[in-house]
Nucleic acid binder design. Structure first.
Length: 1100
RNA sequence: CCUGAUGUGGCGCAACUGGUUUAGCGCAUCCGCCUGAUACGCGGAAGGUUGGUGGUUCGAGUCCAUCCAUCAGGACCA
């Protein structure tokens, strides 16, 4: 039994389990923080997930990203605390509960008490907490699950109230009357989020009407009239004729050209001049009817003639007044019934004149306010016309009640307009209209009272501070988030629901006095006053619930003694999560020091969908309340799609379950795959085969490297107790891999620090598979299993060991399980470092002095030369086991020969060739070619580059020799002469006449393929060794077992046996090799070219 | 409709500020090979008008314009 553990095979899920146990037993996560107590902090904020849905594979990606940087900075010796959190309020939970209870919103407070309902919410919201904790644990995400912040707890709510009060005091809160999507059928306002539910927008056919508004004839409008009796109408189109009684203005575009068209009303046949946008005349009048004469028209004619009379610019029409279309009521406040300008007016639809009903359209309200226009609200919250609507009073504007006898109000209004010569056109119109996702009834836009955060007031500062935040990727911050901030609207804070943080504002009935409460203590003292004033009978109980309905029983007293009731609204849940930097510590009521040390965050990460969600609310609250950013670095990760690029969804059945994936492939392979395959902010096409590939290629290779190491280190008893051999004294290849390793440490460190995990993982992977395993270990195998434990062998062990320990550290942030497994298997045995886990260790320091770019370059030559030789062998069908005489290398530049000499032995043994011969300049063998170096020459020559390139291609061998000798050459193009230097050219050898040649960029290699008896015999000897090794392997001999060999005499191998008997015996660990005339019981072994020998291999 | 991202062999990705790139790598396919590390790898074959078009430039996968496609976000739906 050696000191290093040996394993039968790579089992990542098993490693996961062992590591989890180990971390738990030894409290490694806790230690990773305890050991860094007092060090510089790296602050991370956990965006709270909602535990009322199950975790998906995209959560694994998001949390991997978070985990990577927290772990990386822990390894930078920083204190990284990560408080977990839960988002517990909001509509998704309420809806889930309604569904579970089989009720709708209207039933709350009637069928179910608010108290019962909220209790159910509280209970339901954590229903999948265990599942979340489980996935967090299994994927290796380190976050404090023991002491999470929970948004429904009183302490949390109190902190939020404090923030709200801060906003209130700084004049950031106001109550406003705005137009919002509203569902009369459900009796509730809808958030834009709800409006964006799939299926909300439905294609429907509505009655649309073009109404005729008659301008009042006066000095201002006189220019519109040609004669004393001309009947002029401004026509406007609407798909909601029920809003026409509420019309108070018409909007035109200042720059739009309007045309007056003389024609007849199609329903009454009376002469009429209509005004509409020039661009839309063709939409309402057929070209062929322009041919008809107005005077020929007879009432009832199907084809109505028309005549284009005159054009006006929209600006000319402004402020013209018109007669109210359906005068059921007058607006109480503001101006009305005049033409105003609207930015949004276009000529893509309708008539280019927009009917404005401020109560029923957000744009309408906005433009009306700008112009001092009042509103009419002729429809109530149930969706029916109010009493003053005459014959329409009490009728629903849409069929909200599923009344089978429902008569369409839009049609009746249209009929009325037709009769009164007020309709120019009425027809069915198919369009897309939002519907309530709960009741499936059309919504309407309705003015509602809401509390707003005056975010627009802080807009400039938010934009400015956003520029100091490092966004990954940059465009999400600069463009998506930056643009959104620039077009910021006030934040509608109100939600008329039950399960959420109540708005802490109490008002007198007339709204003349109000108070915003900022703490429980303050509420308590206000309640005391209220009890004294007789509005309440009892003081607040200890630990009272701050939710509804309890909070609504609190009635406060105004200065003049009048009662104040709480505004019934809850606040937007996004305010909850945006408050977490403060509320997670119950700041400012507790933990002031803690808060200050942890604000703002160094790093947060969430999905890009949080740009307008959490990223915004964090930023907005921080700017408005603290004039600060909330986070300095933010990674917004992309979506996780299925392997075909489709969105994952349960209904499609293409969702990947995180639990089965982790259980099957291990957390590390899953994490490594997700991070190395695509940048976190790109969408990831998630393919399980990709995880398997990562497992095989990366983890498999690294595991095998360890297996290889442990196998021989155990045999040799390498425990790293020997004196460290200075790097400078180690062989070329050791110094090379150490140089490469240090380059990697440097670059990967920079990548991690720059929030570029994908780059880091790719570099680590290339190092492990290409450089460490397939070059270093492959070429060094013999050093590990041959001969005594001498300095060379120790150097090899130390080098390989150091590489693996370092790799364990580099990969630890991304693949915490395997990294620790590797680290502990190495370090536990040698005790080189005092850390019991890689996650307590530090990111390795770069030894700049060990980085040798010359060395890296010559090893690159070695790899490429080997590759070229192997390619030539392939072409000539010369097995690698067959030794060849020599390689010919043209010398490219003065340093080339020295560089190749240093790695000559590696190349020769790799490609099984005896020697290298250099072809020097002037040997006459080499033909060189020259190409311009566009990078340097292009800059200098500019426009002349093309000509110069042509000229350079005509250079003779002598010219090239001249460049190499003098380092410069002059080139004449027409009038001009340029002095060019050696660096302006790329010289390479092209060909070696008479030889088998291969090229790779500037390298050229020729191979001598002539064979003699000695080479053939050696080749045969190597074949024999290979076959015997295979037999050893087949028979499961130990690598150290000695054997005896008996081979039947065969002419084709006698030369090999004569000359290479010792070699063969050493290679296969044979104590004796006997040749016999006849071998019975021997096994047939095929060598080459159908040569079959009989041999017997036996264990000593 | 606006904004942004993406578009490179069948698939997934790369190519530092435009220039030693004949557009690389991996997976998959086929042929061959090496291996006392049973994992990988190596060599070769096949596979591309770098989404289209136009432009700037001595030179464009890279910059500009425009169009197309996909994705995301937003506006609007009178």
């Amino acid at each position: 039994m050696g000191i290093y553990k040996e394993f039968k095979g790579l089992n990542l899920p098993e490693i996961d389990k062992e590591q989890l146990e180990f971390w738990k037993d030894k409290s490694i996560f806790e230690k990773s923080m305890q050991e860094r107590e007092g060090q510089e902090t790296y602050v991370f904020y956990e965006g709270p997930p909602s535990a009322n849905g199950k975790p998906g594979i995209h959560h694994v990606l998001a949390r991997s990203v978070k985990d990577i940087f927290c772990r990386f900075h822990t390894m930078q010796n920083k204190l990284v605390e990560r408080k977990g959190g839960w988002d517990t309020h909001g509509l998704p939970i309420e809806i889930a509960v309604e569904k579970a209870l089989g009720i709708t919103k209207e039933d709350i407070g009637t069928k179910v008490t608010v108290e019962e309902y909220n209790a159910k919410c509280r209970e339901t919201v954590m229903q999948y907490k265990d599942l979340w904790d489980d996935v967090t644990n299994k994927m290796g995400y380190w976050v404090d699950l023991e002491n999470p912040y929970i948004t429904f707890e009183n302490e949390y709510i109190e902190s939020v109230w404090n923030l709200l009060q801060k906003l209130y005091k700084n004049d950031y809160l106001y109550k406003g009357y705005t137009i919002q999507p509203y569902s009369p059928a459900a009796g509730t306002g809808l958030s834009t989020h709800e409006l964006n539910q799939p299926g909300s927008y439905q294609d429907v056919k509505d009655t649309s009407a073009v109404a005729q508004f008659r301008p009042i004839r006066n000095e201002q409008s006189e220019f519109l009239f040609d004669s004393a009796d001309e009947d002029v109408a401004i026509i406007a189109w609407t798909t909601t004729p029920w809003t026409l009684p509420s019309n108070t203005a018409l909007a035109v575009g200042k720059k739009i050209t309007y045309t007056k068209v003389k024609t007849f009303n199609p329903y009454t046949g009376k002469p009429l001049s209509v005004l509409l946008a020039q661009d839309l005349v063709g939409k309402w009048f057929k070209a062929e009817q322009a041919e008809l004469k107005l005077e020929d028209y007879q009432q009832g004619d199907k084809k109505i003639p028309y005549l284009i009379a005159s054009d006006y610019l929209g600006a000319q029409l402004l402020d013209i007044r018109y007669e109210q279309l359906l005068p059921y009521a007058q607006p109480e406040e503001g101006d009305a019934f005049k033409i105003i300008h609207g930015d949004f007016v276009s000529t893509s639809d309708g008539t280019g004149i927009v009917h404005i009903a401020p109560s029923f359209g957000a744009d309408d309200m906005f433009v009306a306010r700008q112009n001092g226009i009042g509103a009419l609200t002729m429809v109530d919250k149930q969706g029916k016309f109010i009493d003053s609507m005459g014959e329409f009073a009490g009728r629903y504007v849409k069929n909200y009640k599923d009344d089978p006898d429902y008569v369409n109000v839009d049609i009746d209004i249209s009929v009325k307009l037709k009769k009164e010569n007020k309709a120019f056109n009425v027809q069915k119109y198919a369009h897309n209209y939002p519907h309530c996702w709960r009741t499936d009834k059309p919504i309407l836009y309705y003015p509602l009272d809401s509390w707003f955060v005056k975010a627009t007031k802080a807009k400039a500062r938010m934009v400015e501070l956003n520029k100091t935040i490092n966004w990954k990727p940059a465009h999400t911050g600069e463009k998506r988030f930056g643009k959104w901030l620039e077009n910021l609207q006030d934040w509608n804070l109100s939600r008329s629901r039950y399960w959420g943080i109540p708005l802490p504002i109490w008002r007198t009935e007339d709204g003349s006095e109000e108070i915003c409460i900022g703490s429980i203590a303050e509420l308590r003292s206000e309640v005391e006053k209220s009890v004294a004033a007789g509005h309440m009978t009892e003081q607040l109980a200890e630990g009272f619930d701050m939710h509804r309905p309890f909070i609504d029983t609190v009635i406060l007293t105004a200065a003049d003694g009048r009662p104040m009731k709480r505004e019934l609204d809850l606040i937007d849940v996004w305010f909850d999560s945006g408050s977490m930097p403060y509320a997670q510590w119950h700041y400012p009521f507790e933990n002031e020091e803690k808060f200050k040390a942890n604000y703002p965050a160094d790093f947060i990460a969430e999905g890009v969908d949080q740009t307008r969600g959490w990223f915004y609310t964090l930023h907005a609250i921080a700017v408005m309340c603290f004039d600060s950013v909330a986070y300095k670095n933010v990674v917004s990760n992309g979506l996780v799609l299925d392997k075909n690029g489709q969105k994952m969804s349960k209904s499609k059945g293409n969702a990947v379950d995180p639990f089965t994936t982790i259980a099957k492939y291990g957390a590390d392979a899953t994490r490594w795959y997700m991070i190395s395959n695509a940048q976190p902010w790109d969408n990831l096409k998630f393919d399980l085969d990709g995880i398997d590939e990562v497992r095989r290629k990366f983890f498999g290779t690294l595991y095998n490297t360890y297996s290889f190491f442990s196998l021989y280190a155990n045999v040799d008893g390498f425990d790293y107790k020997e004196a460290v051999i200075p790097v400078a004294d180690r062989p070329e290849i050791d110094r090379w891999v150490i140089s490469m390793l240090n380059t990697l440490v440097k670059e990967a460190g920079e990548d991690f620090a720059a929030y570029e995990p994908t780059r880091a993982t790719r570099k680590i992977q290339v190092f492990v598979t290409d450089h460490l395993s397939n070059w270093y270990v492959r070429l060094c195998r013999r050093r590990f299993w041959k001969g005594e434990k001498n300095a060379d062998k120790i150097a090899a062990y130390q080098t390989l060991y150091d590489c693996m320990v370092t790799i364990a550290k580099l990969m630890a942030p991304v693949s915490p399980f395997f990294a620790d497994f590797l680290y502990r298997n190495l370090n536990d045995s040698t005790q080189q470092e005092a850390h019991e886990s890689v996650h307590l260790a530090f990111y390795p320091a770069v030894n700049e002095s060990d980085i040798d770019s010359d060395l890296e370059q010559r090893m690159n030559y070695a790899q490429r030369i080997s590759s070229l030789v192997l390619s030539l062998r392939k072409k000539e069908r010369l097995r690698v086991r067959q030794p060849l005489r020599k390689i010919l290398l043209p010398v490219l530049n003065p340093t080339f020969k020295g560089q190749v000499e240093a790695i000559k032995e590696l190349v020769l043994s790799e490609v099984n060739v005896k020697e290298v011969e250099y072809l020097e300049d002037g040997s006459g063998f080499i033909k060189k070619k020259v190409k311009p170096n566009f990078k340097t020459l292009g800059r200098r020559m500019g426009k002349n580059m093309k000509q110069a390139a042509a000229k350079i291609s005509t250079f003779t061998q002598e010219d090239i020799a001249l460049i190499e000798k003098d380092g410069c050459i002059s080139l004449t193009l027409g009038e001009e002469t340029f002095n060019l230097e050696a660096e302006d050219f790329i010289i390479s050898s092209e060909d070696i006449p008479g030889w088998l040649v291969a090229n790779d960029a500037d390298l050229t290699v020729a191979l001598d393929i002539s064979l003699d008896d000695a080479l053939l015999a050696e080749g045969t000897a190597r074949e024999l060794v290979n076959r015997i090794q295979n037999i050893r392997k087949d028979r499961d001999f130990n690598v150290t077992d000695r054997i005896s060999l008996t081979i039947e005499k065969h002419d084709d191998i006698s030369g090999a046996i004569d000359q290479f008997k010792d070699y063969i015996c050493t290679e296969v660990l044979a104590t004796e090799l006997t040749i016999v005339e006849n071998l019975e019981n021997g096994q047939d072994v095929e060598l080459i070219d159908e040569v079959v020998v009989k041999m017997n291999v036996s264990l000593n």
